[in-house]
């Protein structure tokens, strides 16, 4: 009996630790992004709330929580209320399969340093990533606003397109690791991180990941200059906050997936494994911020061209080459 209880307690502890880390990181990513964007543009970024603006996320959080929760007239009430939660929850749930260390042995019991190691972890990740589209598309549709609707439609089209490239690009990794389990994939990189073996897959995956997170240069669903704020135009207060949170958690997930698939996951010398994972996530995310500071938004047709005519063929070719090498 106590055996089961202990198992649940350990699980709860892991969930709590991961969620806390992810949430805090998401909040501070916002600050880091704003600060970095400021510096990229030769200004300071937020520096008023606390020293160097470190209390800015707290201030933002308070503001978002206290703001009035508006709902447009004619909005589909239930869907409008649910959409932000869909986005945030799917993003958070993806962390369930990300391993953040080797198995620990405490008191003779082995504790896996992953919330749950399912053998189709990779498929689970893609399934949740696809579900995230519903938050965007339904939020945009339920707002009863033309900007939001356009944003939602764009989001659906874009995320479905890039889901394909994302999935195909990872097939060689699966082939090399011989498993869908993220734990196994990390273990497969004990010698050599896959980035060195599969640079093309890495590139395709990174670009697709940015498109999945709807970040510049793929932020067409939001597109402030064209659509106001796209699918979340009509959202305010903490509902908008959930969309926001979802986006930054998604960034971390993608960072973590890049780390797991290509950078060896938690593996690294000297530092403890979770720190290595964190460092790798942060590096990927910083790169995404750099991209945001550098590249302009793609046009819709360019976005589709890039996805269907460049990334998917590249990924397919990559699978063929990998298969050929493995067969050889």
């Amino acid at each position: 009996m106590w055996f089961w209880l202990l198992g649940y307690l350990v699980l709860m502890a892991k969930i709590t630790a991961v969620l806390t880390a992810v949430m805090v990181l998401a909040a501070y990513l916002v600050l880091v992004e704003r600060k970095l964007l400021g510096r990229f543009q030769v200004r300071y970024g937020p520096n008023r709330a606390g020293i160097y603006g470190i209390l800015q996320p707290v201030a933002d959080g308070i503001k978002l929580l206290l703001k009035e929760d508006l709902m447009p007239e004619g909005a589909d009430r239930a869907i409008f209320l649910a959409a932000p939660a869909v986005v945030a929850i799917t993003a958070l749930m993806m962390f369930a399969v990300v391993p953040f260390g080797p198995r620990l042995t405490i008191g003779g019991r082995e504790i896996p340093m992953v919330i749950t190691d399912i053998n189709v972890g990779l498929l689970y990740v893609f399934a949740l990533s696809s579900l995230g589209v519903y938050g965007v598309a339904l939020g945009g549709w339920a707002s009863n606003s033309k900007y939001a609707l356009l944003g939602g439609i764009r989001g659906a089209a874009q995320m479905i397109s890039y889901e394909l490239a994302l999935g195909l690009s990872i097939v060689p990794v699966v082939m090399l690791a011989g498993s869908f389990s993220l734990v196994d994939i990390v273990n497969a990189q004990a010698g050599l991180p896959f980035i060195l073996v599969q640079p093309l897959a890495f590139g395709v995956f990174l670009i697709s990941a940015m498109a999945e997170t709807k970040r510049i240069p793929f932020d067409l669903p939001e597109a402030e200059t064209e659509l106001g704020a796209g699918y979340h135009t009509e959202y305010s207060g903490m509902r908008f906050g959930l969309f926001f949170l979802g986006e930054y958690v998604h960034m971390q997930v993608m960072g973590a997936l890049v780390a797991v698939f290509f950078l060896g996951g938690w593996r690294g010398p000297v530092l403890p494994p979770p720190v290595w994972l964190l460092v790798k996530i942060v590096l990927v995310v910083l790169f995404m911020i750099w991209v945001r500071a550098t590249l302009p938004r793609l046009r819709y047709d360019q976005l589709m061209n890039l996805g269907w005519k460049v990334l998917i063929p590249l990924a397919l070719v990559n699978i063929l080459i990998t298969g050929a090498f493995m067969a050889a």
């Binding site: 970095l36 400021g38 510096r39 990229f40 543009q41 030769v42 200004r43 300071y44 750099w290 991209v291 500071a293 550098t294 590249l295």
Partner: peptide
């Protein structure tokens, strides 16, 4: 050209803000 863009923005990180 994309690399040039990244170089330009990256260099700005080390320029003192004139705010």
């Amino acid at each position: 050209s994309i690399a040039a863009g990244f170089y330009t923005t990256g260099r700005h990180l080390f320029v003192r803000p004139f705010t």
